[in-house]
Structures are given as structure tokens and as C-alpha cells.
């Protein structure tokens, strides 16, 4: 179902609780009473259309209005993506890690195998934080500098000093695929590892991995299909300055 501005915000969450993630990452607190999506967005200084498009993308895998997205400000995406990164690093990843560690602790006889999984995931966490670090420390500041240039109609000192030589293509060369390892982990857990007797814990670990994977897929889609084309547009624009 298409999500529209006059729907009540609370109803939206009843309809699809996964959208809580969008609401949190766009910076809207709960406690909606009977307010509509539009009212809540205005109150929190969030562009209603931006929220609606994001909510629809997360709600419906078929919905992806690339053109509509390209008109939104790059800063809005950066804010959203930053909060998403934070959510991964502070909550989702530690939660999965905790579950793995607690499985290792419980299983004594085949713990060597779980030790492998633990190390595998530790590697993954390192990879993910490098990946996120690169975006936070280089790419996002670069995009902010670009949009500042466009606002001022000239290349700013900050841009000339820090980013004159940089371009989004440099980032694309360095940036690695962060979903493949998660995919592997899932398959190892489902197909090749003897499960412990406490299936509930094991399942909840798998469940968390599936959820993180889906989340990452949408996240990468926003970065690759919207943010990067948008940056290319901006790069073209300042070439003439």
C-alpha cells in the first residue's frame, strides 16, 4: 500500500513496524498521538515528501522513484545515512556479536567451530567499520563541501584546500562490498554448522542477520542509485565555477 501524507503516523507503524527504523533515522521521536505523517514531519523540521519516499522504499521493495529522490538535498541523505551507520555500529552489529559470543560460551564440545564463526564476524566488524569510516570521514564531508560550493556559487576555500583532487570515482575504487560476507555467514549457519540444542538463540541470531542484510541492501541502494548519481550531478555543476 502506498504511504501518503494524511495517514496517521501511529497507524503507519502498526502497518509495518520495520518503518520504526526510518522514523528513528530521519530524526523523529515517538509519541505521535493522533497526528498525521504531515503534521509530525512539519513539527520535526523534516521534509514530508522526503520522509514519504523513504518510508515507501523501505515498505515496498518494488518502489524506487529514482528521479523523485534526485531533487532532494544531499544533506538530507547524509543525515539519514549517518544515523543509519550509527545504528549499525552501536546496536545491530554489537547485538549480533553478543549472540555469537554467548553461543560460543554455551557450547563446550564443538566450541572450536563457533570460535571460527566468532573470528569470522570479528573480521566482518572490522571491515564494516573501515567502510563506514571512509564514508563518514571523507565522502560525506566531500559532499557537504560540494553543496556549500553550489550554495555560494563558487569554489570555497575549504573545498580548494581539502577536496580539489578528490572525486566520487576515487571513493568507488576504494569501496568494498559489505554484503557478501554476511551472505556467507548466513549460509554457513543454515547449511554447514551443527546447531546447538538451544535452537531459539540460534534462530534469533539468524533472524538478526537476515534483518541486517535486508537493511544493508536498501542502504547500499540509496547510496549507489541516488547519492552517487547526485554527487556526479554536483561535480558537473561546479566544473563551470
Amino acid at each position: 500500500m502506498l504511504i501518503t501524507a494524511e495517514m496517521k503516523m501511529a497507524d503507519l507503524i502498526h502497518m509495518d513496524f520495520q518503518l520504526l527504523a526510518v522514523i528513528q533515522r530521519i530524526g523523529i521521536p515517538l509519541g505521535f498521538r493522533e497526528k498525521s505523517i504531515d503534521e509530525v514531519c512539519i513539527e520535526n523540521n523534516v521534509n514530508t515528501d522526503f520522509f514519504l519516499q523513504l518510508a515507501n522504499v523501505f515498505h515496498d521493495a518494488d518502489y524506487f522513484p529514482k528521479e523523485k529522490f534526485l531533487v532532494f538535498k544531499a544533506e538530507w541523505f547524509i543525515g539519514f545515512l549517518r544515523r543509519t551507520h550509527q545504528c549499525y555500529l552501536d546496536h545491530k552489529i554489537p547485538e549480533i556479536n553478543e549472540k555469537i559470543v554467548s553461543l560460543v560460551d554455551e557450547i563446550k564440545d564443538s566450541s572450536a567451530n563457533y570460535e571460527l564463526i566468532k573470528n569470522f564476524f570479528t573480521d566482518y566488524m572490522r571491515e564494516l567499520s573501515v567502510h563506514i569510516g571512509l564514508e563518514e570521514k571523507t565522502v560525506f564531508p566531500y559532499i557537504s563541501a560540494l553543496s556549500e560550493c553550489i550554495n555560494q556559487g563558487k569554489k570555497t576555500d575549504d573545498f580548494i584546500q581539502n577536496f580539489e583532487e578528490y572525486g566520487i570515482d576515487i571513493y568507488l575504487d576504494e569501496h568494498s562490498d559489505i554484503e557478501e560476507k554476511l551472505f556467507d555467514l548466513k549460509n554457513i549457519l543454515i547449511k554447514y554448522l551443527a546447531p546447538p540444542t538451544d535452537n531459539c538463540k540460534y534462530n534469533s541470531l539468524l533472524y538478526e542477520i537476515f534483518r541486517l542484510e535486508t537493511d544493508l541492501q536498501i542502504h547500499s541502494k540509496i547510496e549507489e542509485k541516488i547519492l552517487i548519481p547526485k554527487v556526479r550531478q554536483m561535480e558537473q555543476e561546479i566544473k563551470n565555477f
Binding site: L116, I117, F120, K181, D184, L185, I188
Partner: peptide
């Protein structure tokens, strides 16, 4: 066949299935 793409994933599989040892 295995549904595993990365080298580190394949390494884990190999150890689990005694194709190599730690």
C-alpha cells in the same frame, strides 16, 4: 554449490569440513 562467496567464508567452510585444519 556451497552458496559461499568470500575467501574467508570458504576458509570457514573448509575447516568445518576438515578440508584444511586450523
Amino acid at each position: 554449490k556451497l552458496g559461499i562467496k568470500t575467501v574467508s567464508g570458504l576458509t570457514v567452510y573448509s575447516i568445518l569440513n576438515q578440508i584444511i585444519s586450523v
